[in-house]
Amino acid sequence: MADLEPLIGEPLALDLVNTRPLGADLLETPERLADWLRLEADRLPEPPPSHLTGGDLAAVHAVREHTASILDALFGGRRPPAAALRGLTDAQTAAPAVRRLDWNGDTVTETPARIGAPGARLAAHLADAAATLLTDPAVRRVKKCGADDCVMLFLPAHPRRQWCSPERCGNRVRVARYYHRHKAAD
């Protein structure tokens, strides 16, 4: 089913939250997580781990749930749960950020990196993406899809955007409206 394909192209943290469409989990297994990571590979600082474990999946799920919980609170005008904020910080701390030093033959260079197990580095990067989104004033513009049966979130580039995807929900809503108008005329 097309609606069970990951929706990508939003800020990485929203893409992660959007892996929970209504009644489904698109990151249900380490293999499904690997598939999603391949779709997002150009947005990751390092290649995804070659072998993902249940523990890696649990760490990513935790980041996703913390991010969703914080966004839900912000949508409701409430204070984000302290446990969710702490959870994102814990994910970042599990793979500390360092400035890796190297020599390029002429001068010392630095490259930002995270140290730790591959799954912890992945969860830390996703927590970083969540922190970037949540601290950006643009987070106030994040919207829920206007389709009744959709829970996807998006950051609209245009203020009149109503749906997570014009091809998915936008088309479905337009077809339903058309059908309803023509059925009522009969």
Rank of each mutant, 00 (worst) to 15 (best):
Pro48Leu: 09
Pro45Gln: 03
Leu126Arg: 05
Ala62Asp: 09
Ala97Asp: 03
Pro166Val: 13
Ile70Thr: 01
Ala123Glu: 04
Val63Asp: 04
Arg114Trp: 11
Ala95Asn: 03
Ala117Asn: 04
Gly105Asp: 08
Val151Arg: 13
Asp56Pro: 08
Asp102Ala: 15
Pro156Thr: 10
Arg100Leu: 15
Phe75His: 12
Ala120Ile: 01
Ala127Val: 02
Cys145Trp: 08
Leu88Ile: 07
Ala73Ile: 05
Phe75Thr: 03
Ala82Thr: 11
Ala94Val: 04
Trp163Phe: 12
Glu46Ile: 05
Ala131Ile: 05
Lys143Phe: 06
Thr111Trp: 02
Trp163Ala: 09
Ala91Phe: 07
Asn104Gln: 01
Thr107Asn: 09
Pro112Leu: 12
Ala91Leu: 04
Arg160Pro: 01
Thr135Leu: 14
Pro81Cys: 04
Ala97Tyr: 02
Ala127Trp: 01
Arg140Pro: 05
Pro48Thr: 03
Thr111Phe: 07
Thr132His: 10
Ala131Arg: 01
Ala91Met: 06
Val98Glu: 06
Ala82Ile: 08
Lys143Gln: 15
Cys164Pro: 04
Pro156Phe: 14
Leu44His: 10
His66Trp: 11
Leu85Gly: 06
Ala68Ser: 13
Gly119Cys: 10
Leu39Tyr: 09
Leu153Gly: 06
Arg43Cys: 06
Trp36Glu: 04
Thr135Pro: 01
Pro166Ile: 12
Asp35His: 13
Trp163Lys: 10
Ala97Gln: 10
Trp103Pro: 01
Arg160Ala: 15
Gly76Val: 00
Leu133Val: 05
Thr89Glu: 10
Asp149Pro: 01
Leu85Arg: 02
Ser165Glu: 11
Leu57Phe: 06
Val108Gly: 00
Leu101Thr: 12
Glu65Asn: 11
Leu88Cys: 07
Ser69Met: 01
Thr107Tyr: 05
Arg121Phe: 09
Ala94Gly: 08
Pro81Arg: 12
His61Ala: 15
Asp35Lys: 12
Arg86Ala: 15
Gly146Pro: 00
Ala73Asp: 07
Arg121Cys: 11
Ser165Ile: 06
Leu88Asp: 06
Gly105Thr: 08
Ala120Arg: 12
Gly105Tyr: 04
Pro47Trp: 07
Val139Ser: 02
Ala41Ser: 14
Ala62Leu: 11
Asp106Lys: 13
Leu74Cys: 07
